[in-house]
């Protein structure tokens, strides 16, 4: 059996459902290049006007933080409670500020 899908590159697909909203990850697919990935993405992920714009990104090009290291990775922010609005106690009459 030819293993073409193995030679094909994996792409992640992001769709913007409406102008003004973010592109959102919707899934992945195999394609030969960006152009083909865009066409496949249109056929697979926007058959019912789910989007006005599509991004395709090679999965290999995505650099991601390791979730298992989440604790130490985000550590530096954890001791700064004053970054949250709720940290500041204001008098009731003005508290919806």
């Amino acid at each position: 059996m030819t293993k073409v899908t193995e030679k094909l590159e994996l792409f992640e697909v992001f769709v913007r459902s409406k102008r003004g909203l973010d592109h959102k990850h919707v899934g992945s697919l195999h394609a030969e290049d960006h152009e083909q990935a865009l066409e496949y993405a249109r056929d697979c992920y926007t058959r019912r006007s789910e989007g006005v714009s599509i991004w395709v990104v090679k999965s290999n090009d995505i650099c991601s933080s390791q979730e298992d290291d989440a604790d130490c990775f985000y550590d530096p922010s954890d001791d700064k409670p004053y970054r949250h609005a709720t940290y500041y106690v204001l008098p009731d009459p003005v508290n919806n500020m």
Binding site: M1, T5, R47
Partner: peptide, 27 residues
């Protein structure tokens, strides 16, 4: 029927994230 092909794709992609290739599954 076209939708069902799409469903197959969504699921094969989900399964591939577990470390099995598409061609292994088809085999």
């Amino acid at each position: 029927v076209q939708d069902e092909a799409g469903h197959g794709l969504y699921l094969y992609s989900a399964c591939e994230t577990l470390g099995i290739s598409r061609s292994e599954m088809i085999e």
